[in-house]
């Protein structure tokens, strides 16, 4: 591989590589928490870490940060509907 090619490769892969590192680090946190269960209600932290991972994939890997407002809207609408589905169903199960 030519030297110039390598430089190009490093330049364009910078963001994907950083994403990879961040995701693996977050996964390590979750795995550590799951394996040791250090304190009660640790699930709150685990859910937060998961949310971070999802956000990184959406915003960086899937380029939402650079997309048009329309695509941003469509990428969030599904998650909003998820809130409706879970929230409304829980008004049943949490209050039976």
């Amino acid at each position: 591989m030519a030297r110039g090619d390598l430089r190009v490769l490093l330049r364009v892969l910078r963001v994907p590589a950083l994403t990879l590192a961040a995701l693996l680090a977050l996964l390590a946190i979750n795995v550590a928490l799951g394996a040791t269960l250090p304190f009660r209600n640790v699930w709150i932290v685990e859910a937060g870490v998961t949310a971070c991972m999802v956000a990184i994939v959406l915003l960086v890997s899937m380029d939402i940060l650079e997309e048009t407002p329309l695509i941003r809207l469509f990428s969030s609408i599904g998650f909003f509907w998820l809130l409706i589905m879970f929230g409304m169903t829980l008004t049943d199960y949490a209050y039976r």
């Binding site: 509907w81 409706i84 409304m88 008004t91 049943d92 949490a94 209050y95 039976r96």
Partner: peptide, 21 residues
């Protein structure tokens, strides 16, 4: 999408859910 529970008022759904729906 917020009203589906009105099909379920008499099936053992919680009273709160029924009222909200």
């Amino acid at each position: 999408f917020l009203v589906w529970g009105h099909h379920m008022f008499v099936n053992g759904q919680s009273q709160l859910a029924s009222t909200v729906f």
